[in-house]
Computed example of a mutant assay.
Amino acid sequence: MLSRVVVAPSGFKESLSAQAAADAIADGVRRVLPDAEIDRVPLVDGGEGTAVALAAATGGRLVALPATGPVGDRLGTHFALLGPAGDTALVEMAAVAGLSLVPHSLRDPGATTTYGVGELIRAALDTGVRRILVGCGDSGTSDGGAGALQALGARLLDPDGFELPPGGGELLRLHRIDPAGLDPRLARTELLVACNPYNVLCGERGVARVFGPQKGATPAQVEHLSAGLENWAYVLTRDLAVTHTELRTGPGTGASGGLGAALAALGARLLPRFDVLLGHLDLDARLARADLVVTAEGALDHQTPRGKVPAEVARRAKRYGRPVLALAGTLGEGAHEVPGVDAFSGILPAPMALAEALVRAGELLTDATERALRMILLGARLPAHAEVSGTQRPSSVR
């Protein structure tokens, strides 16, 4: 009997927020299980919606302000003060430098900047907080966090002593960093970065190679960005006297186009994002009480076990022996290999254009939830005539 369903999705990039995804799934559950208790737990991973979600979850508040967007324009954005005391600020980099803020015609990760992230950190410092948590995810940048450092007072100089223009495409020309103007309050403030530890700055799995194409980089740009980030790691380490972190390949240094490396150079601790963020949502206790857990994300594939929401939900749910259904906008290679996921389903009932799928994502997710649950209930009524031998795989409910 499915009397209590925990709905714990991520957002669908450029389509549904985590809250909207949770609401859509809950609507589908209601069609099949009208009397079930549905516990919505929209999950944040440091990317879009993190500040709003955690401000609400902790009884905190949002602080609205203008800042520099990823393509250099001024835009309205925000950061969060967590809890009634407001002594911890959460800066969501996607709220000021996210991919959704980069028009399709301007998607050039060699030119976009994290300058606005640094502006938000300075604004958070102005409130007198003792701790700043930076949520990384859904970035539209690949500048290694260079823009953020410039906004915080560092000077990035080329061989002729001129300040570098914005963008990761300029990092190969970086000759020296002058840290004299860095905001002195940074040294007195605990700086934490919630990031995906699988994302590293340089090397074959470096952030430019893995995520550059998604942000609009051509193959030639990917190599140029990669070389620039190698130089960035070298100069950062030398001029900021970094000894506590290996900036090239340390866990999380590639977070948000390399923002993790820049903040680590300032003394920030790079922490697995779910360890930092999910404690505010009491997720484990809620999963322990579930009869069924439904999670979701835009894509389910070989990348999912590398720090994505469905894999984390499934891992935690399995501590309590709870069955997990995962729904996804697209199913890719490796979708059947996500540990802890018992069944999975794509939400598209038929091929359709991406633009249409993005617009109809809520409707499609609701319908897919209904179809999957009806299959689960049918399966529960079928007699088990024989044992299944061999390696079991999650079922794909289409």
Rank of each mutant, 00 (worst) to 15 (best):
239 D>V: 01
119 E>C: 13
374 R>P: 05
23 D>H: 04
164 L>G: 12
382 L>G: 03
320 Y>M: 15
345 S>F: 01
138 D>I: 06
40 R>M: 13
205 R>L: 14
306 R>M: 14
200 V>W: 11
304 T>G: 08
3 S>G: 14
91 V>Q: 06
376 I>L: 15
188 R>T: 14
170 E>T: 15
357 A>P: 12
113 T>K: 12
22 A>Y: 04
76 G>I: 06
118 G>Y: 10
37 E>I: 07
110 G>Y: 02
261 A>V: 09
66 P>W: 03
231 N>Q: 03
327 L>G: 07
330 T>I: 05
299 A>E: 10
297 E>H: 04
287 L>C: 01
49 G>Y: 01
166 P>K: 10
67 A>M: 07
113 T>R: 12
321 G>I: 09
255 A>E: 05
299 A>C: 12
229 L>G: 09
84 P>R: 11
34 P>K: 07
272 P>L: 05
30 R>E: 06
177 I>R: 08
352 M>L: 15
365 L>H: 12
89 A>L: 04
254 G>F: 09
214 Q>V: 11
71 V>C: 14
183 D>E: 09
230 E>F: 02
95 A>G: 15
91 V>R: 09
202 C>W: 07
51 A>K: 01
250 G>S: 03
367 D>T: 06
359 V>F: 09
350 A>H: 05
6 V>Q: 07
378 L>I: 06
311 A>G: 15
300 L>Y: 02
208 A>D: 00
334 G>C: 08
157 L>N: 07
20 A>K: 00
178 D>C: 09
319 R>Q: 15
122 R>M: 04
86 G>C: 10
336 H>F: 05
313 V>F: 04
180 A>F: 05
316 R>W: 01
56 A>W: 00
153 G>K: 10
130 R>W: 07
13 K>P: 00
238 R>A: 13
221 Q>M: 08
313 V>H: 03
163 E>I: 03
109 P>T: 13
99 L>N: 02
11 G>N: 11
79 F>L: 04
326 A>V: 01
310 P>K: 04
315 R>I: 03
230 E>R: 11
44 V>M: 14
389 S>W: 03
33 L>F: 08
27 D>L: 10
183 D>R: 02
293 V>S: 07
84 P>A: 15
321 G>R: 13
349 P>N: 11
68 T>A: 04
28 G>C: 13
134 V>H: 00
277 L>P: 11
112 T>C: 00
386 A>W: 07
73 D>I: 02
301 D>E: 10
276 V>G: 11
40 R>Q: 14
368 A>W: 09
227 A>V: 00
193 V>C: 13
67 A>K: 09
170 E>L: 05
99 L>K: 08
79 F>D: 01
149 L>I: 12
257 G>Y: 05
68 T>S: 05
34 P>Q: 06
313 V>R: 03
283 L>D: 01
7 V>N: 12
269 R>H: 11
138 D>P: 01
53 A>Y: 05
299 A>F: 00
385 H>N: 05
251 P>W: 04
398 R>M: 12
156 L>D: 14
199 N>D: 12
186 L>I: 13
319 R>A: 15
382 L>Q: 06
279 G>S: 00
100 S>F: 09
246 E>H: 06
109 P>M: 14
141 T>M: 01
249 T>D: 14
306 R>L: 15
311 A>W: 07
286 R>A: 11
187 A>R: 14
230 E>P: 06
3 S>F: 02
273 R>H: 02
355 A>S: 15
239 D>H: 02
126 D>S: 02
170 E>V: 09
120 L>I: 08
230 E>A: 12
7 V>R: 07
